[in-house]
């Protein structure tokens, strides 16, 4: 299975400021990413620019409104992500525990819905509806 690991934004990541121990953090993260790669777990990884560089499009019936960043709800914003190949959510959790985060950071793991899963869920919903 694949999972998307979402690293949430913080006031620092949103202002684009680097913390004082930036170099250590980068080196720890490099080591961690290297371990993920060596284990064949890492499929993709990227960091995102602060939301000030982002845009949103709002949909109201036929109307489309473009909203420029930054966006206020910092803790709901995403600052970076990984895509991992793992055998279970437990394995994903075990890997994430080893990540070099601190300071109350919360990182979220969400299983990626594969097309087969989607079809199965759809069938199950249809079967329930038919009953």
């Amino acid at each position: 299975m694949r999972v998307l690991v979402l690293v949430k934004a913080s006031p620092e990541s949103e202002t684009g400021q680097f913390p004082p121990d930036f170099k250590d953090l980068v080196s720890d993260m490099d080591k961690y990413n290297d371990a993920l790669t060596k284990a064949g777990v890492m499929l993709a990884a990227d960091g995102l620019y602060p939301s000030s560089k982002g845009k949103r499009v709002r949909f109201d019936d036929a109307k489309r409104t473009v909203i420029d960043g930054p966006f206020a709800e910092t803790k709901e914003l995403v600052a970076g992500f990984w895509i991992w190949q793992v055998r279970s959510m437990d394995e994903a959790v075990e890997w994430l525990k080893r990540a070099p985060f601190g300071g109350g950071a919360e990182v979220e793991i969400r299983p990626i819905q594969e097309q087969e899963d989607f079809q199965r869920d759809l069938d199950a919903t249809a079967a329930r509806a038919a009953r």
């Binding site: 290297d34 060596k38 064949g40 190949q85 055998r87």
Partner: peptide, 14 residues
């Protein structure tokens, strides 16, 4: 396939 892919990726790193 997933197991083999994973082994292949491990080898790429090693």
């Amino acid at each position: 396939c997933d197991d083999a892919l994973r082994l292949g990726r491990v080898l790429q790193a090693l």
